[in-house]
Every structure is written in structure tokens, then in C-alpha cells.
């Protein structure tokens, strides 16, 4: 456990010390600003109240989860694996007394930490902006739903991230993995539109999984079914990625 903790702290520190995270934070803030401009524009233009203080964070989440978050999750996942292989820095940790399974898990946990931190930062800021600029409709239940919506979004995003991690351990070039991830993202979205009955199989369609948690009557059956599909993705790609990582000669 001690070496896993050391590896996890190191991986988080490495992610946080890179400029990508700062850019991700700035762009995430931009999502909030864009959301607010949209709301203000519609309010003033049409005289409507489009988003209350508790709806605003959900509007921002829908913007974030379909644009900036998957993009930066992909960049961070590629950096953590392909980046370290290509810059030859992977061997720094691999020659320390930490097993490959612990290092692999620590790296994935660090990616999850980045995603969660990004989500929570945007949630807190959008809540604050919602309270300041939009009509006040504060309720503890509403806030709890927002918190839940942001937290459960971690699961579909990480399911997608694990596909990228697997590709990073199969392909040598980080650039190839990045473009493949974008193609995959677009293809999954297109396929879920063309074959809506099978949309659940294409993991990106589940980025809006939080909606199921945010309705008055939670559709438990659908929620559990989608959770198991995502769990299947996680188990498959975590295992396949680890197999490739463990067998890799440096």
C-alpha cells in the first residue's frame, strides 16, 4: 500500500505540474462563462428565465462533458502513458521498488483524480455563478442532485479514458492515440445517432448519464443497465491495458 500511495502522489504531482492542467482549468472556466452568457443573452433577449441557480450548474455540466472534459481527459491519459514511454521517463518509476500492477493502477487513479477535481472545481464555480447571476431557488435537495450529477459523470468519462489508456499501451505514438481517440469519440456519437437502439453500447452516449440521476423519478432499471455496461467497459479495458503495460519491454 505504501508504494502504491507513493506512486499515486507522484503521478498526481506530475499531472498537476504540467501546463495542460492549467489550460484545462482555464477552458473549464470558459465553459462557465459561455453558459452564463447564453443564459443572460436568452433572459435579456426573450424576457425568459432559462436557468435558475440550481439549473445553471447542470447546463454547464452538459457543455463540459461533451467538449472540454473528454478532450483533456484524453490528453492527460495519453501523457501519463504514451508521453512517458516516448520521453523515456517511464523507466524512472519502473526501476523503483513498485510493481507494474501498482504503478498502472496509480496512474489510472491519478487520471480519475484529475477528472474528479476538474468536475468538482467546475461544479463549485458554476454553483457560485448560479447564485450570483441567476434567480435564487436554493434548496438542499437541488444542491445534492447537482453534486450527485457531477460525481456520477466520473464513471462514463473514466470508461472512455480506459479505452485511451489501452490504446496508449498498444500504439507507440501519442499523436496517433490522440487522433484515434477523437475519431472514436466522433464515431461513437455518430453511431449512437444512427443506431439509437444500440446507443448504450457506444460509451460516449453515456456521458449524459447524470440526467438519469437528475429526474424526479429515477429510472432504476435503465440506470443499473447502463452502469453494468460501463462497468463492463472498465473491466475489459483496465485488464487489457494492464496486460499490455505489464508485457511492455523498455
Amino acid at each position: 500500500m505504501g508504494t502504491f500511495k507513493a506512486a499515486f502522489i507522484n503521478e498526481v504531482e506530475k499531472i498537476y505540474r504540467k501546463k495542460k492542467v492549467v489550460v484545462a482549468a482555464i477552458l473549464s472556466l470558459l465553459a462557465i462563462v459561455m453558459g452564463q452568457l447564453l443564459v443572460t443573452g436568452v433572459n435579456k433577449g426573450f424576457g425568459l428565465i432559462t436557468a435558475s441557480s440550481t439549473q445553471f450548474p447542470i447546463l454547464v455540466l452538459s457543455l463540459l462533458v461533451n467538449t472540454i472534459l473528454p478532450l483533456f481527459t484524453a490528453l492527460v491519459a495519453i501523457d501519463v502513458f504514451s508521453g512517458e514511454f516516448s520521453h523515456n521517463t517511464m523507466k524512472i518509476t519502473l526501476t523503483r521498488p513498485v510493481s507494474r500492477v501498482k504503478l498502472y493502477t496509480a496512474k489510472i487513479s491519478a487520471i480519475a483524480f484529475f477528472v474528479l477535481a476538474n468536475l468538482l472545481m467546475v461544479m463549485l464555480l458554476s454553483l457560485a455563478v448560479g447564485f450570483i447571476f441567476n434567480s435564487v431557488s436554493l434548496s438542499v435537495f437541488g444542491i445534492l442532485r447537482i453534486v450527485l450529477s457531477y460525481i456520477v459523470t466520473l464513471i462514463p468519462v473514466m470508461s472512455f479514458a480506459l479505452i485511451i489508456v489501452f490504446l496508449s499501451n498498444v500504439l507507440k505514438s501519442g499523436t496517433t492515440v490522440f487522433f484515434l481517440s477523437i475519431i472514436l469519440f466522433i464515431a461513437f456519437n455518430a453511431l449512437s445517432l444512427v443506431f439509437p437502439r444500440y446507443a448504450n453500447i457506444f460509451i460516449t452516449s453515456m456521458f449524459d448519464w447524470y440526467i438519469l440521476w437528475n429526474v424526479d423519478t429515477i429510472p432504476l432499471g435503465k440506470l443499473i443497465r447502463e452502469f453494468f455496461i460501463m462497468a463492463g467497459y472498465v473491466i475489459m479495458f483496465y485488464t487489457a491495458g494492464y496486460y499490455m503495460f505489464d508485457k511492455k519491454d523498455l
Binding site: A6, N10, T95
Partner: peptide, 30 residues
């Protein structure tokens, strides 16, 4: 096996975006 081993293999690598002190601080955690 590696607990009491120190090594340089092929090239001495370090994280370029960190200082020597920060690099060693990272390694020390193990």
C-alpha cells in the same frame, strides 16, 4: 528485489519540468 537497488540504465532520465530537488523528492517517496 529492487528495494535495496539503485540504477541508471542506458540514459540517466529525470522529469525535465521539475528541479533536481523536486525530482529526488518524487523518488524519495518510494
Amino acid at each position: 528485489a529492487m528495494n535495496k537497488v539503485g540504477c541508471i540504465i542506458e540514459t540517466a532520465e529525470s522529469y525535465p519540468y521539475l528541479s533536481p530537488y523536486e525530482n529526488l523528492k518524487l523518488f524519495a517517496r518510494f
